[in-house]
Each structure stands twice: as structure tokens, then as C-alpha cells.
Amino acid sequence: MKVAVASGKGGTGKTTVSLALAAAAESPCLLLDCDVEEPNCHLFTSAEPWRTEGVDVLVPEFLGDGCDGCGACVRSCRFNVLAGFGRKVMVFAEMCHSCGGCVLACPHGALREIPYSIGRLEFRHAEGFELISGVMNVGYAMAPPLIRQLKKHLPASGLALLDCPPGTSCSMVTSVRDCDFVVLVTEPTPFGLHDLRLAVDTLAELNLPCGVIVNRAEAGATLIHDYCQEAELPILLEIPLSRQIAETCSAGGGLLDACPDLKEPLQALLAQTLPGLLAGRSVAS
């Protein structure tokens, strides 16, 4: 079962929940940190990477020889990666989407594809689970190729958790795509609700089932519950607003260190609630 933990709004507790689920899981699981722009799961483990794998994409390189300045390569690129004048082509590799079109478009063989480093994957044996973090190079802006490379390490069976980037743009969509279930972590604030709606709408487009965890829940703050009732979304768990949780996590601890009582509901969520919801869904369809 592949469970993505996403949110819409940033800072709602995706990493806290992902790590708590990994810690609560009854058999060893794999956690992928897909928030490659600012991965942070590894901050909560003392393990150093036992393996690091570089991630490259292919970008064009201008060879010079043969170029007659026809401009076919420049015109072929919808992302304006190439600048050409005279018999010279400049390549702005950091903007390239690696389609290879310019190399095909050049009738003179004056371009070839070369690897361009966009980041790395870090593998750690964490306490009770395996962690693979995607780490994008500073200055590079396109997360999806790195996330796709990270997801190639998803196991064929067993439990995998994906700590997703915030928002609902390409990086979040790339992360949740092909998962079995998406856990949306939110908070009972107008901003939390607003971005939760965006995330729910995005997942509807992707035809992915989801449920909600309300973090920093407070008695009387019912706006998330009201919305979930109206949208017929299951509320999977509530994590109380607690100074103790905040202090524990700030010191590098986990949710279960602060609230051991949550271990059982998290285990039930993984072992019963989610499989139940998925079974119900396959029956319904």
C-alpha cells in the first residue's frame, strides 16, 4: 500500500504525521521524502546516509561544428532554453525540460545530449523504517524529474509512505500520482481549509481517494469538520493543539514521543481504516 501524506497548505504537519506513521507501522516500511526542495524527514533521525545516488537529467550541449546558424534548435524549444545568433548557440540548461527536441531538430548534428545534475537521493536506515530523501540542488527549480527518480525505489509490496511537497502544483501531483491513498493533513484555520479544498479538488481530478487528519485540533474549531461532512470526506485522526507536541518536535523528537497514546490510532489507521476505505472503494467502482 502506497500512502501519500500531502496537505495543500504548508506547515500543517505532513512530516510529523509521515514520521509518526512510519514509527507506528507494525512491520518495517519505506518512507520517501518527496519534498525535494526542502526535505526534512532526515532531521528527525540520527542516521547518516549509507548510500547516495546522483540524479541527472539530459540537456543539450552545443558542439559548434556543423552549425550554420539556421535557428532550427532555437525555434524547436518552447521553453526558450536556447539562444542563437550567428553560428553560436547558448544553452540555459537549468530551464530545460529534457525533451531532446532541439537535438532532433538540428539538421547538422551540432547539438548532443549530456547529463546535468539536478540533485541526489539519500538512503538512510532510520529507527524502524527505511528513509530515502530526494534533495534538489540549490538553484534548480524543477522538482518532478527528481521525484520521479525517487519513486522508482517504491517497493512492489509492503507499506510505503510518501511525505509530499505542500501545494497542489506539479511537484505535489508527481508525488501523489499512482499512490493508493492520500492522507491530507490540515489545521482548523481559514487558510488550512482554503488549501485543503484545493488539494481535495486536485485529488478528485486525479481520481485518488483521500482522508483528512486535523492537526492542532481545538474544541470549538469545527470548520474542517463542517467541510469534511459536506464533502463526504473521512476524518482519519485529530491531533490536539499542544505545546508539548510543539516542544518535542522542535527538539527533534517525534509525535509519538510527545503523545504515545496516538500510536494505537495510527496503527489502526494503517492496518484497518485505510485498507477498509480502499476495499470499499473497489467494491463501489
Binding site: 518552447r78 521553453f79 526558450n80 532554453v81 539562444a83 545568433f85
Partner: peptide
């Protein structure tokens, strides 16, 4: 109209 690389395009217009 360019989604990205407007400066690169504009520079080529100037050069042309």
C-alpha cells in the same frame, strides 16, 4: 507571451 525565458527571447530580438 513566453512562459519562461522572456529575457533570452528579448535579447535575441535585439540582436536580430
Amino acid at each position: 507571451d513566453a512562459p519562461q525565458g522572456a529575457g533570452i527571447q528579448a535579447a535575441m530580438t535585439v540582436i536580430k
